[in-house]
Structures are given as structure tokens and as C-alpha cells.
Amino acid sequence: MQVFIAQVINGLSTGSIYVLLVTGFNLLLLVAMIIHFSYPQVVVFSMYIAWLVMKYTGNSVVLGILAALGSSILLSLISAPLFQKVMKKRGEVDINTSMVLSMGIGMIITDVLSHAFNNGLPIAFPASLVGSAPVLRVGLISVTTGQVWSMGIGIVVVSLFFLLLYRTRAGRAFRAIAEDPSGARLVGIPLLRTGLYSYTLSGLLGGTIAVMFAMLLGYASPGLGEQVAHKVLAVSIIAGLGNLVGGLFVGLGLGILEALVQGYVSGSWSNAIAFVIMLIIILVKPKGLFGSKL
């Protein structure tokens, strides 16, 4: 029982990172109408920037966090005109082209990280940011500050996100575009400009995830983005592409599933087993557990 509880806590904290990643991915899918396959690479890149800034500022946590947020937003906004240009060239929105562009961005980021930073070796975040100290320990169950932060930030950010989506003018426009882009255009909602808001927001989200990731893992490596990207894509497809609420449940679900496999079977098999289970789900429900919104 203690193993179970411990692993559920572990799972919830990684799960909240998956949830935010899927949310950012889905936001771009629904509003900017791109498949940003490499969104997690952008997040990992921001982790590296945060690490770099902390290294040269005497491990300043505040500056590190600001660097993560800033670089993620900037990277997201820089990529926006590229995506919009590619999509416009084809006459109308073409989601498939965006996927190729996103893959390219991901590969470039991975290569830059493995050549330009720390000789390609994994980076370790300073203790001032990483929350590996336990705040609670009962038998086998131990909760670290990183886990508490990760779950706490996850809950706050997701709540704020849904508040924005359902209570603001921009959120209303997001939902309208998500449901029917050409209908939204007829009402006079500017697709490109509203799309830019979604790039900014997903950038902000990405920066937050970078900080959470650094606190929880304590390290980052050039391949981390790619590894996570597969999971994010899988989660969003299994939940139903573009299904934000579905992403919440499946993101947390995957986190818990992985942790349980790690706890009861084997750590090295957790990816494979989690993916086999997801494969079965997708065979039974091809449109995702919660239904695709595309």
C-alpha cells in the first residue's frame, strides 16, 4: 500500500507536467492550427537557458525563472511567423506542413543543445532551484518540495488557463476558432492575431513547465525534449486530439501509470509498458478516450 501511495504521488507530479505540455500542444493545435510536435523541445531549450542564466548570475532563482519564461515566449513567437507563412503559402490552413516545420525546429534545438551547451552532457540545476529535499516522510512515502511545487503550480496554472478560456474575450475567441475557424472569421475574429495570442500563451505555459521540470528532475539532457515529445503526442491522441479536458485526465493517468509500472515491475520497462497500454486504448477507441475536437 505504501508503495502504491508513493508511486501515485510520484505519478501525479510528473503527470502535472504532461498535463501542461498537452495543454500547450492542444492550444496551438486548436487556435494556431498547427501540430507543434516539438513543443517539448522548446520547453527543454528554455531549461537550458535558465541553467545558463543561473550559472552566470550566481544561481539566482528569480533570474533563472524569468529566463525560462522569457526564452520560451520568445522562441514561441519567433516560430509563429514561420508557421503562419508556411500555412498561408498553401492557400489555406495545412496542418500537415506545420508538422514538418515543427519537427525541423525540434531537431535543430536538439542539435544545438548537444553541441553548444556543456559539451552535450546533461546539465544539473543548482540546489537553490531543485526541490529534492523531502517535506514529508512516512515509511516508504516521501514527498519532495519539487513534487509539491510541480503539483501546486500544475493545479494553479491549469485553473488559470481554464478561467482565461471561459471567462475572457481572448478565451472566447480561442474557443470559437477551435470550433469553427471559418465561422470565426465571418464573425470578424482575426485568425492570425488571435493565433499570435495562443503562441504567446503556449510560450508562457512552456516556460512554466521548464521551471517545474527543473525543480522536479534536477537535470536536463539534449534528448529529454524528444523523449517527452513522444509521450505528449501520444497523450493528446489518446485523450482525443484537441480535447483539453481529456488531456487533463490522460496526462495525469500516464504519469501515474508510468510510476506504478516503475514501482511494481521495473523502471526500465515503464515506457514500453505504458505505451503498450496506450496502444490497446487507441485500438479500442481510435478517436481517443474523450473524443477528438478537430
Binding site: 474575450r169 472566447r172 475567441a173 474557443r175 470559437a176 470550433e179 469553427d180 465561422g183 470565426a184 464573425v187 475574429i189
Partner: peptide, 12 residues
Amino acid sequence: FASMSVLDNLLL
């Protein structure tokens, strides 16, 4: 917008 409320549609 079928999945949105009447009020949201009006506000759009």
C-alpha cells in the same frame, strides 16, 4: 458556435 453558450455566442 454549437458548443458554446448563447451568451458566449452573443459576446463573440
